[in-house]
Amino acid sequence: MAKGWRVIDCTAMTGRLTYKRGQLVVEHHDTETRIPLADTAVLLLGIQTTVSTALLQQLAVFDVEVLICQWNQTPIAAMQSWNKPNTRSAARQNAQQEMSLPARKAAWQKIIRAKILGQSHVLDKLNLDGGELLRSLAVQVHSGDPNNIEGQAAREYWHHMFSEEQFRRFPGYGEGHNAQLDYAYTVLRGFLIKSICTAGLSPTIGIHHHSASNYFCLADDLIEPFRPAIDYQISQLPDGPLDSEMKQQIVLSVNSQFNPKELTIPSLVDEFCGQYAQYCEGWLDKLPVPVFGKRR
């Protein structure tokens, strides 16, 4: 597997993390596990874990994205490496800041259309109703999505997904599939943040999301086309508790292929962030957005 593919979740761990000879050393309940940092993409830290400064320094050297989580496993802060800055960072972040409103709205239109088309593919793949309706809604998404077609599509989509469970999507609350989706999106968001910074972009400068309290507005924009692929993977899991075994299955799901015989989700995230950087600088006239279920 490619470099930087592991997601190490220490949010529920009581123990100590240290560094030794290129490896993350996990000390937990009188046991010691060693994980190569070269294989690690994202590290999730909880409130009961002690971390050595030597490890933090090496996490930066190995360009590992570190997400610091609250008691409910929601990320509250992140650490990005300055070890290998993108040589075009200044130019790209200036281009982000100066991007015209029409260009932002056009990008958001393509992102939302791709998301809704991906959702329709999920319903088709699960032999559920609603796919045709979502495709008709995708066509109605105009520049900037002024009529909030995204919200209309979401209501239809979640109405059909997990319908036998009388499911309602409540981010940050609940259990079962709600908790599984939240956790999967958190892991995916970690990959987005890493890829955005690697591409030399500023995570604070969003396309549609704008909030003084959100350092990762751009991640919350660029994540949208990938959500349907995650939703489908979660639909294949039992509606059980979010225990350590379930978390391992979810991490594998996030590392799955976006489409058959194509890139994995994290690899495609890397590519998409690079393409968005080129779009910001004007090298691409249109932003190519991946669609779950559609081959490029």
Rank of each mutant, 00 (worst) to 15 (best):
V122P: 06
E65W: 01
I47G: 07
G282N: 02
V42Y: 01
N86F: 07
A153W: 01
L43H: 12
N178Y: 02
Q257E: 08
D63G: 10
H142F: 01
Y279K: 05
A107Q: 08
C69Y: 08
Q180S: 05
Q140H: 04
Q70G: 14
L242K: 08
R6D: 05
S211G: 15
P102H: 03
G190T: 09
S256F: 09
H159S: 09
A90S: 13
V42M: 07
R169F: 08
D231L: 02
K294M: 11
A229F: 10
H208A: 11
R296I: 11
A114I: 06
R6K: 15
G118E: 11
L117D: 13
A229S: 15
Q73N: 11
L24C: 14
Y232H: 06
V61L: 13
G151Y: 07
N72T: 07
S195C: 08
E132Q: 12
V251K: 13
T18A: 11
N255W: 07
S100A: 01
K110R: 15
R189C: 02
A103S: 00
Y232I: 00
K84M: 04
Q275C: 09
V7N: 00
A41G: 12
A60R: 08
G206A: 09
L181Y: 01
K286C: 11
H208W: 10
F170A: 06
A77M: 11
P75Y: 08
F191R: 04
Y19K: 02
N178Q: 02
F226K: 12
Y279V: 04
Y173S: 00
Q278D: 12
T186V: 04
E27T: 12
S120P: 09
T74E: 14
H28L: 06
Q257P: 05
P146T: 05
E245T: 13
S52I: 13
A2R: 15
H29W: 02
D285M: 08
W283I: 14
K3R: 15
